[in-house]
Amino acid sequence: MPQLHDVDYTLEYPYTRTTGPVIGPFLTGLRDGRILGQRCGDRVLCPPMEFDPDTFSTLEPDLVEVGPGGEVVNWTWVAESSAKHPFDRPFGFAFIKLDGADTALVHAVDTGGDPEAMSTGMRVTAQYREERHGSIADVYFVPEADAADQVIEPGEEPVTITEHLIGLRLNEPLYPHRARFAQGLLDGKIIGQRSPVTGKVYVPGRGYDNMSRVLLSEADEVVVSDVGTVVAFTELNPVQYYGQTETEPYVRCSILFDGTDQPVIGIDIRDMTVEEMRVGMRMRCIWRDPEDRSVEDIDNRFGNIPESVYTRFEPTGEPDVPADQLKEHSW
């Protein structure tokens, strides 16, 4: 069986955060070169908190400057830094109790890559980045002796909202049944899986029959027709979210291919208008030339019959299938 491609899938979005009455001033302070703690009874919490962690009562904003010096109360060493880390060389993550604070802040300590320079009880000093955005990453720490004098220009507006590109990257092989389905499309064939219990044919197969709770294997696979019946359609006006590449309205439809029992959903129709679509309409897949077919968009979760394997779906001109015969397939 050919190994088509690994799935390299990034789920990523520029989320925003509203910062509220306590965290907002804290982030504004970092941008302006100051670290602020929140008074909580006779203690000062840094990082500041909105709620008293002991009594759960709401803390009215009452921020006081702490640091810039502090003491490492515990630490760990990051021997290999990643792209998301604050430094491109080995560094320490430490609990730092800043002067004037009663709780410790977790932050990064740059010793120039030397783990021997880290110790519990060591004195560190805050240093600020050239570019600051009202973020916890505006600041970092160095051993007290290494600290440089910095002149920080304060910003103007208070920080009330921040943006964070948060993501998750998955890298995994295509499941075997997905790989066989995708290879079928490259060969101009639609492969389904037939349940040995009910005889129902699913396209694409899931590798199991969810109704009869049996596994389905290559032995259960059948090539089905590339002619089928439209069972549902909808016109989409693409919402312009992050990563959206669609700009114009287009039609999505579900097609029940002949000899199958479950429609393939989400088939893109680009050369017909929604007015030309009918439930019951007979359609045929017009495949791309073999060398132009691609299944890169198929992963283990998304992608059925992508536009990258066909040029269009074309009405066959046969009479429509009556809607009541399609009642069982109304997705």
Partner: peptide, 14 residues
């Protein structure tokens, strides 16, 4: 703070 249609689309276009 996010976008529901983006999330329901598994972060994919279309």
């Amino acid at each position: 703070e996010g976008n529901a249609t983006w999330a329901l689309s598994g972060g994919k276009s279309g």
